[in-house]
Simulated scan of single mutants.
Amino acid sequence: MSNALPPTPTSPGLSVRRKGLKTHPTLPLSAFTPPSTGTGEQFPLPPDPSTIHPTNVIDAHVIAPSGDLSDWFAQVDEALKGKIGGAVLSLHGAEPSAIDDLLAKVATSQTPIHAVLVPFSLEDGIPANPPKYLSDATRNPLIVLSASFTKNTPAVAEALKWALDNGFSVDIDVQTNLKDSESEWEALEELFGKAMPHETEDAPKPKGKVVLTNLLPPPDDLHLPIVKLLTHSTYQAYQSHCAALSLYSNVYVKFIPPSWGSPTPPTPAPTVTETPAESEYEIRDTNEKREWKRRIKMYIGPCLEAFGYSRIIYGSSPSPFSHSKSNAADWYELARESFAELGTEQEGVDAVFYGNAKLVYSSESS
């Protein structure tokens, strides 16, 4: 039995109904739980996380409304020494009147800033008088609109279509109750159907891209055992709607710390041991971290099957609307090990942690 993920399936035709369940492959339970003691040495060991590291890393979700990256850099310097290829800076929480000055400050940053996420309200509809910094969708660093989604209205669809047609990519933080309501998933899909008709009609493809946050991993209840989660209706809905959302070819998913009501567990420092190297990470991990990785891998699986390695983007800051705390270095280790333990090869890791962000958050790609 192999722990590797199956190849990403070919996307179904656009004539497929976007609502309702979709048949899709699933990962075996063994990908998330250790084997029983009776399997002995015949059960293959999972890949050693220490052997898979991204060549370079672009952190695509660094929230710093003051434009100061010193705190983020202090967290990741040791974990990513020599690998930092840049960051995508979110100005969430900054005053609109200060954004022009902040953009000038960012331009002089020693850390390469590939893009800046500026606050944008979809609920207000098409902006009547866009601010000056929205006059050029290809400026450097790239300007990306940062919005939240709470409900689907005509104004929201019009604003998203306006942004994409004008060359702006849009980061959308999904703040609806997807966990308990099938209709909330459908509202998100209906929004895309109205804002991106090119996928179902003979319409020009928009210049911009959509990046969804707070979906991978989605908000979750840590008290629900993983074995029960596998057959729970919320998890089945997650699988189905990930597949439906992936039909929109310019939609990406951002992999950030989840809103699970608990801080991201740290990676304990290594200790001298005579234990074989292949078990070192299992020994170092706390029970909490092991539980988090098993749950994270459950959510990575369906997302990979739907979007593939080419449309998932790594970021270290949690959703600004959550109360979860996360250290950037702790999340990097947790995220990297989770992908490695799913059998991800070097090419896939490099895409998730670097290449996809470089593609989406660069003026050359707009």
Rank of each mutant, 00 (worst) to 15 (best):
N152I: 00
P154R: 10
A155P: 04
A157M: 07
E158A: 13
L164H: 03
D165A: 03
D165V: 09
N166W: 07
G167D: 07
F168R: 00
S169R: 02
D171E: 03
D171V: 07
D171R: 07
I172Q: 01
D173G: 06
D173M: 09
V174D: 06
V174M: 07
D180W: 04
S183W: 01
E189V: 08
F192Y: 00
A195W: 05
E199W: 00
E199Y: 00
T200M: 00
K205C: 08
K207Y: 08
K209M: 02
K209S: 07
L212M: 05
L212T: 09
L215E: 03
L216I: 15
P217E: 06
P218A: 06
P218K: 08
P219K: 09
P219Q: 13
H223Q: 15
L224F: 05
T234L: 14
S240T: 11
H241C: 04
C242T: 11
C242G: 11
A244L: 07
L245K: 02
S246F: 11
L247Q: 05
Y248L: 09
Y248H: 13
V251G: 07
V251R: 05
Y252E: 06
P257H: 13
W260M: 13
W260S: 15
G261M: 12
S262V: 12
T264H: 15
P266L: 15
P270M: 13
P270S: 15
V272Q: 14
T273P: 15
E274I: 15
E278K: 09
E278P: 11
S279K: 15
